[in-house]
Design a protein around this nucleic acid. Sequence first.
RNA 1: GGCCCGUUCGUCUAGCGGUCCAGGACGCUGCCCUUUCACGGCAGAAACACGGGUUCGAUUCCCGUACGGGUCACCA
Length: 506
Amino acid sequence: MSSKVRVRFAPSPTGPLHIGGVRTALYNYLFAKKHGGDFLLRIEDTDQTRYVPGAEDYIIEALKWCGISPDEGIGGEDRGNGPYRQSERKPMYMDYVNELVANDKAYIAFDTAEELDQMRELAKAAGAANWQYNYITRGNMKNSLTLPKEEVEAKIAAGEPYVVRIKLPRDHEVRFEDIIRGWVSVNTNNMDDKVLMKADGMPTYHLANIVDDHLMEITHVIRGEEWLPSAPLHIMLYEAFGWESPSFAHLPLLLKPDGPGKLSKRDGDRLGFPVFPLEWTNPETGDVASGYREFGFFPGSFLNMLALLGWNPGTEQEVFSLEELVQAFDLSKVSKSGAKFDFEKGKWFNQLYLRKLNETELASLLKTELDKAGYSINEAHLGKVATMMSERATFPQDLVNEGTYLFERPSAYDEKALKKWNDESPAMVGDLIARFDALENFTEAEIEASFKAYLAEKELGFGKVGPVFRLAVTGMGMGPSMFTICEVLGKKETLARMNAAVEALA
RNA sequence: GGCCCGUUCGUCUAGCGGUCCAGGACGCUGCCCUUUCACGGCAGAAACACGGGUUCGAUUCCCGUACGGGUCACCA
């Protein structure tokens, strides 16, 4: 009888979540929902020096925008496993650390950060490999393993700062089966006695993580590959406590599209696209980093894009709603190697999502964008214009930007299109003005019929008059059907523009 | 550098010993549609890192090399 699936996303509030973090949260969410389990959000803020105000709210808002809010924990329900912020759990960790020390699974160490740095430098100067605080070196350091018991007690009584380190056994092969990578094996000889509790009394990530995952009954730990090297330590910790370890799944990293390395927060807008779900203003510098939401992405397309970065269902389906992702998701189909992030594919997804919208939805998007840009049009035309512009838009703002001539008179004429304008043009436009002016209902169909009748009468080709007509009305050399544009503009405005063009370009 | 993980088109990837002179998608190129642009349709270029094994047979299994990534804090 297996217990209920419970997973957690446990970010550190050191700044905005980047898209790699969002993907980790997404995979956790998908896995939980697929198995009818719980998705928790825990804040790992054991490092007080790195706390960034606003980061926690940002994380909650980002998940909410994506539609993958946690069931339990920060931003979700408190189901009695809280607090869900590690800084608020500080007193709880002490007992566990003491238990480990009492059972000879951990020890107290007095070495200062400076002394440790010195050891590392010395080792480096001697050309040795990494200096490690381990089964060999701990015998020469200042700790409860080397110092007499009375001295240890005296130091503690005197208020001397100390840390607690795990006491790793010598030459022990640590093995665990990663859901994505299969068996991973590391010898304790290559590991060191990591600090479990810092001098300030706060646990390190390693200790807090294990204690909390155990207490919160986490069944599956799904996290980035950057944690793979410390997974053996975590296994040792579970063993030290005598607890059953959860299953692990280490996700491949999101890599920079250009140079080497993983996509990082610092990449910001250097690459010409957002790396954060929502816009973020650095509270210290005031710098603003763009977000996918503000860039015009839909939560659905954003998630769809992220989901396929490192996972695929094994079929040729690429477009998924969140519900479909839940159904199709499978951790064993997550790939092993890192994925270079490709913004072009993301844009494609957004374009696809935009086109799936119906006329009412598009009209509402257009209205919002028009308001933002300070434009307004006859509400009756909203749907027509939105639909017309949607096929050349990737983002909602393109609905306006790709056709500003629909909302204001052209202030200039496109240089390239201007080449189509010649000596005969004013007369042609003049003829059209006269014809259009006579139209009863200035509708798309009527305008088209009138225009074509004119072509037939003068025995002119569409290519001869069309571009000139377009230039006069929109100032452009390309765009959607002129007849639709004219109907939207209305007779008065269309004729006014044509007259203005004749005057300006004569 | 030590340790760990990985390696199929430019990119994301399918492939779990013969179905693969390797499939899909983004991007790119060409053609068609079209007054133009866009959309759409069609077509095309484009990859199994290398070397050894194992096997009747390797993209698929094993080993090595190369390359890439991660990690080596009283940060997570």
